[in-house]
Amino acid sequence: MKRLFPVTALIALIAAQLATAGEIWVTNEKDDTISVIDVATLEVVRTIATGERPRGITFSRDYARAYVCASDSDAVQVIDTETGEILHDLPSGEDPEQFVLHPDDRHLWIANEDDAITTVVDTETRRVVAQIDVGIEPEGMAVSPDGKIVITTSETTNMAHWIDTATHGIIANTLVDARPRDAQFSPDGAELWVSSEIGGTVTVFDTATQAETAKIRFAITGVHDDRIQPVGIKFTPDGKTVFVALGPSNHVAVIDAESREVTDYILVGRRVWHMAFSPDKSSLFTTNGVSGDVTVIDVAARKAVRTIKVGRFPWGAATRP
């Protein structure tokens, strides 16, 4: 009995690891591939071919399918996550860059960067349901947790467009600083955070009134302000902490969501774009475009612990438990 205990404990531990480890899928913009990282071993275990210039990536709710924006192929590709096979393309409008899957698990809202349009596609019928005129170079996409509002940010128009998902009409346009790249709702849906790459700021809005409630600025010793270019935004599930990728400053900022204070800057690879949590949320994976790698951050310790080589110009990242 005494001898048996550690063995069962070990088995349980391994089982737990297998069950929770999961994968991080990273799109490589200039390799036309996805690198699949095993969270347990921190190694690339699969490389999946995609269409041209893959950027935005997300999963269906059951994680059986991956959706990938193949920007230069003008398509959203649907990939079988087990086999890595491309099942079919969805009509996406021209140059899809980012998208968001509605909580209904059925409608993809896609930013068409070259066309100043947001396209809504039904993933079941594979038809375009609506196209909405937005500002120039739409990019960042977010959906409120209740599914009622979708946000498109437009990079050259410098706005967040608030779209009513029921009517497909724009209900508000809110100006932000130059070149907005990413938008994220807080987990409770009460706030919208928008990053401005050239402006160097993150703007916080109150969802109910669309009023600006805060503007967050960054300062890193030894890095010129111009190089601090916020892009990807990631909330922890409890909504208390926000990670913001700061592009060519090669740092990720850690923000206390309530006080809006930046508590840490974590050095990662070069030109950091987007981020994904491990399924257990203990680590954060960042895509570093220029250095062609992924940095693994220990979330609790606020430290970079590992670098993983992926394809050329990694851009998007998504978690598959």
Binding site: A116, G135, I136, T156, T157, N158, H161, N173, L175
Partner: peptide
Amino acid sequence: TDNATTGRFL
């Protein structure tokens, strides 16, 4: 053209 697209919303 870029200005006009932006101006439309304002």
